[in-house]
């Protein structure tokens, strides 16, 4: 879909990482590659970010794992995945056969696990980038999530980036005291780009039974409910680091949503929850972006990037 039926190109170039259009499947919403349902047109996706892969297989968290909340999905899957060896043996070949660029999402609880995952995945045909998941708790450092400590983040991201010849994206949650500073730490450590945002912590309560609706009990909120939070994160970071590729994720359901992310400074978008309920959402969104560009007479998605004008400011000051 590099060139749309409408003539203009909707390919995007994330500093050398090129996608045929700007819409990828978000991590966790298209399994690791096995039994992808036939209703998803995998080969028409710009790319697939895998469910986060760990060194050992993981059964994931106890049930119940999901609840519907206003315009949102609250979930806690606990990184259920087959582990890296089985991923390489059984899952990756299927994605490669579907001819879709793969971004492997990796998650660990210790530095050596990230190292092991990087070496295992780095030279595998089909994998075009790594996405480092840093919301897991750090077993070597008081159980805090990695993203809570700039030192640990620097260590983990630095190790992955040094060992990998692939572009490395770091996926950050929005509610960090210093999001922009944290983003800077990742880039200085060697990351090529950022994925913003991970699901937002949430709690759903069943007042009838006086109990939480998830066993976790706090889960990650996704879907339309979190779009403004994700947009704010993208905007904040893109504003100070306009040359760093950002993949925007969080509540993208329509082409209009995707365009909003591009305007806020994203270079591409990922679609999660919307694809769960509409398996062809990513393809429809890509087509919608093409129509939007055509209508506005804009030649490529990159020309939208960061063009967001702040209301009240004179028009001339928009992203120069």
């Amino acid at each position: 879909m590099t060139t749309s039926a409408l003539g203009q190109t909707i390919a995007v170039d994330l500093n050398g990482l090129v996608f045929s259009h700007p819409v990828l499947a978000a991590s966790g919403c298209l399994s690791t590659g096995r039994d992808v349902p036939s209703v998803v047109d995998v080969h028409r996706l710009a790319g697939v970010v895998t469910r986060s892969i760990t060194v050992a297989p993981s059964r994931g968290s106890v049930v119940p794992r999901a609840a519907e909340t206003a315009s949102g999905l609250l979930s806690h899957v606990g990184l259920q995945n087959p582990g890296v060896d089985e991923f390489l043996a059984k899952d990756l070949p299927r994605l490669v056969r579907a001819k879709v660029p793969v971004i492997a999402s990796i998650a660990g609880t210790r530095l050596d696990e990230y190292v092991r995952l990087t070496t295992a995945l780095d030279r595998r045909p089909g994998i075009v980038a790594l996405e480092v998941y840093v919301s897991t708790s750090d077993e070597e450092f008081a159980g805090e999530p990695f993203h809570a400590s700039p030192e640990r983040l620097n260590e983990i991201v630095g190790a992955v980036a040094r060992m990998s010849r692939l572009p490395v994206f770091v996926k950050l949650p929005p509610m960090l005291p210093e999001l922009v500073e944290t983003a800077r730490v990742c880039i200085r450590a060697g990351a090529s780009g950022l994925t913003l945002i991970d699901a937002v912590p949430g709690l759903a309560v069943d007042a009838d039974r006086l109990q939480s609706r998830l066993a976790a009990p706090i889960g990650g909120l996704s879907g339309p409910a979190i779009k403004p939070i994700a947009l704010a994160a993208v905007y904040q970071v893109a504003h100070v680091m306009p040359r760093v590729p950002i993949m925007g994720v969080g509540g993208v359901s329509t082409a209009a949503d995707a365009v909003e992310f591009l305007l806020a400074g994203a270079w591409a978008v990922q679609v999660g929850t919307a694809m769960l309920v509409n398996p062809s959402a990513p393809v429809e969104i890509a087509q919608g972006i093409a129509s939007y560009l055509k209508e506005k007479g804009i030649s490529s998605p990159a020309d939208l990037r960061g063009r967001l004008r702040v209301r009240g400011e004179p028009a001339g000051d928009a992203a120069s």
């Binding site: 919403c29 399994s31 349902p37 209703v39 998803v40 469910r51 049930v63 119940p64 259920q80």
Partner: peptide, 8 residues
């Protein structure tokens, strides 16, 4: 459809 892995 099997995508989300929440109905375990």
């Amino acid at each position: 459809t099997g995508l989300c892995y929440t109905c375990a």
